[in-house]
Structures are given as structure tokens and as C-alpha cells.
Nucleic acid binder design. Structure first.
Lengths: 212, 212
DNA sequence: CGGCCGCTCAACCTTTCGATGGATGCTGCT
DNA sequence: AGCAGCATCCATCGAAAGGTTGAGCGGCCG
């Protein structure tokens, strides 16, 4: 399997230690070649445009502006783009769905053992999707109980509510009327089985529907 | 400086990639020797008891039961114990204070560049405290603004509010009148500089005053 | 095409929450 | 001892959020 052509990798993570760790783990594995590692999402987008990269290992949260999901979308939008494998600490619904919608080929958690990591990279390089067991489980749960699947707009509203904004502030931020915000909240309450904004935030954070 | 005796290190982190990264970063640096790396806090406590360890690099959050701060306390409680340098992704008040109270010699963030990491280990090995700039800043802020210290009762109330309970439910749970709960909340709002329960929960979680 | 669903908004009424004000008891400082 | 400061407790009232009903618009799918 791992014959002449190695899989060429680009690593994107803002933690120097993690970049060094990925290098150490993957370069000892046969059949992998780390082309470059970068500390920002912007640099990842730039370097992924060059030929000679098969798979990008992408963190989701960077210290700077651009998020990993945005970078993933920017990379996969181009023709002949490399595969993007998201590698992060977090397994919330919001993160996972954003990554998959952005075109990620796989989603791994950083606590994965090296063998699992290597296997996922090979799977991704072959163009098949690679999901960590915990992530796959969460997606199954979501499929099985569609009541807890908030719509994009609902998630957006609830996130702002969780950040402490009032209905009036949310409505201004999203260019909506307060009536619409209330309407969304009512639907959210029904889906989560609660009857107040704070309870909705608690339930949603517990289920990982919004980021903390 | 880095003459005959190298600084002997024990690494404790549940992420294999991070352990590999720390090994890679520190072993290339002269004057360091990694004695062992472990994936759990419990093993860190066990191995730190053996002689031949100068500094423990300790993560704060593990997948398992024991927290890094507990492990730190267990290690530093023993006479002739090695120095513990906490190395984590998070910089919330609660985490930092718990670590320092547990007897950590230093507190570093994982996004630190390798040189800073190496320098901090040398500082810690010499018995001096080593704080990341961001952490030092946060501590300064906390000193300057002592209003963010919630009382026991206030924390109790806010935690229940964060769990999604209404004032009526909180009052029943704590055997209070609703008026008392509201009164506590007003004080909490004043201390946190907010004016609603959801904003208070957001502010308190951001500062690590309550668990999520 | 007709129905389903997500998104948007309005008007009304009810409940809850937040603001204000005041009481008690403990602790520490002078 | 006396006082200041804080944590804890409680009551009342206007304001904000929640609940209800009803409705229009656009996309998706059988």
C-alpha cells in the first residue's frame, strides 16, 4: 500500500507543540511526508493552493481571526483541492457540522492514538470520509433524534442568547424584529424541551449544540 | 548553565500528539531529559513519587476522573517533590487559581513558542515561578478588580441559574424566598458588570467562576 | 402542483425578572 | 465597645421576557 508515492501533508495548528507532535507522529509512520506546517488558517489557505499537497490537517480554532471551518471552505472550494482533515479538541455539534458543511473529508479528535490518526489520513487521502468514533456516535444520535437538530438560524440566535444578549440586542445584531427572535426561541424551547432562555442555553451547551 | 546534570522531565497529558510534541520540542533542546510521559493524572502522581524527576509538565484537563490540579496538589504535598509546571490550553480564572493553590510552580499556555517553554522549564527547575504573559496579565486584572470574587451563596445561586433553573426553582432548591434569590442575583450583576441572568452566566463562565 | 418546513413579522396577554429599598447577623478593624 | 463592611435574608412594583394566535413568503420534495 505505502509504495513509491508518499502522502504529502500540510499541518495547520496555532500550537507549536501540537505541530511538532504531529510531525513526530506522522513522519515516523511510513508513507507520509510533511510538506509544511503553519500557525494560521490564512497561511494554510495560501499553501494549500500550491500543488504538491494531498491532505491538510486543519485545527478548528486559531488564535487569530479566521476559523478553521472558513479556511476549510476556502480550500475545498477550489478545483483539484487537497482533502481537508479536521483535527480538533472539541466535539460539539456546531463545530462538527460547520466542518462537514465546509467540505472536510474527516473529523478527528486530538486525543486519538497515533495509529488512528495515521489510518484516518490514509482514508482521507483515498478520498473516503474519516470520522472519529466519538464524532460518528454524535452524528448518529443527531440522526436518531431529529428534534434536537436546531436550524442554522436557530443556532445563531441561541448562540447570541448564550453570550448574554437580550432579545432586543439579538434582533439588532441579526437585523430581525424582536418578534422573529421570540419566534425562533419558542421553536428552540420546543425542540429542547425547556421553557426559558437560560434553560435552553444550559440544555444546548450540555448537548454541544453551541460553543461555550 | 546547561552543564553535566540535565533537567529530568515527566510529561503528563492525555493527548498522544501533545506528548510527542513536547518530547520533540524538549529533547532537541540541550540540558533536558524526558524521563517518561503518561496519559493520566493518576500515573503522573505515581511516577512523580519516584526519585529522578525534577520537573513535571502537567495538563489540567484529562479525559478521566482526576483533574490536573488535584494531581498537582498530590505531588507537591510530598517532601522533596519535583516542581510542577502546568501546561494547558485554558486561561480561565478558576483553572489558574486552582493550579496555583495546588502548588504549581508555573502556568503555561499550549500556544507558547518552544523557546518560552524551555525557558519556563529552566525557571521552574531553579525553583522560581514561571507564568505565561497572558496568565500574568489575567492575574494582574484580577488583583486590580477584586469585585469578581463571588460569595459562596452567590456562586451557588448562579450555578443553578446557569443550569437553567428559574428563580422560583432556585428558591425551592435552596429553601429561600424568590426575593432572596433576586437579591443575590442583583449583587452578582453588580460584581460582573452585567444586567441580566444570561449575561451573568456568560460572564461567569468566561471568567471561569462557575463550571459549565 | 400542493404540502411541508424554515424564516419572517405583528398584536395581545401573562408570567417572570430586575430595580429599589430595607432588615438582620457575623467579622474584623480601630 | 463601636462601627464599617459584607453576606444573607425578605417585600413591593414597573419593565422585560415568555406564550399564544395568526399570517405571509420562499424553497424542497413526493
Amino acid at each position: 500500500m505505502n509504495d513509491a508515492a508518499p502522502i504529502r501533508l500540510l499541518l495547520a495548528d496555532d500550537h507549536p507543540v501540537v505541530r511538532a507532535g504531529l510531525r513526530a507522529v506522522l513522519e515516523t509512520e511510513p508513507g507520509f511526508a510533511v510538506v509544511a506546517d503553519v500557525p494560521t488558517a490564512e497561511e494554510a489557505v495560501t499553501l494549500a493552493a500550491l500543488p504538491g499537497v494531498d491532505v491538510v490537517l486543519m485545527d478548528l480554532r486559531f488564535g487569530g481571526e479566521m476559523r478553521g471551518s472558513q479556511a476549510t471552505a476556502a480550500i475545498t472550494a477550489r478545483p483539484g483541492a487537497p482533502r481537508v482533515l479536521v483535527l480538533t479538541t472539541y466535539d460539539t455539534d456546531a463545530d462538527i457540522l460547520a466542518a462537514i458543511e465546509a467540505g472536510a473529508t474527516g473529523y478527528l479528535l486530538k486525543d486519538a492514538p497515533p495509529e488512528e490518526l495515521a489510518a484516518a489520513v490514509r482514508t482521507a487521502a483515498a478520498g473516503k470520509s474519516a470520522l472519529a468514533p466519538a464524532v460518528a456516535l454524535r452524528l448518529m444520535d443527531r440522526m436518531r433524534d431529529p428534534a434536537v437538530a436546531l436550524s442554522r438560524r436557530e443556532t445563531e440566535v441561541l448562540q447570541l442568547v448564550a453570550d448574554g444578549l437580550s432579545n432586543a440586542e439579538v434582533s439588532k445584531r441579526l437585523f430581525l424584529s424582536q418578534a422573529t427572535v421570540k419566534s425562533h426561541l419558542v421553536h428552540i424551547y420546543a425542540k429542547l424541551g425547556v421553557d426559558s432562555r437560560t434553560a435552553a442555553v444550559a440544555a444546548a451547551t450540555a448537548r454541544g449544540l453551541i460553543r461555550r
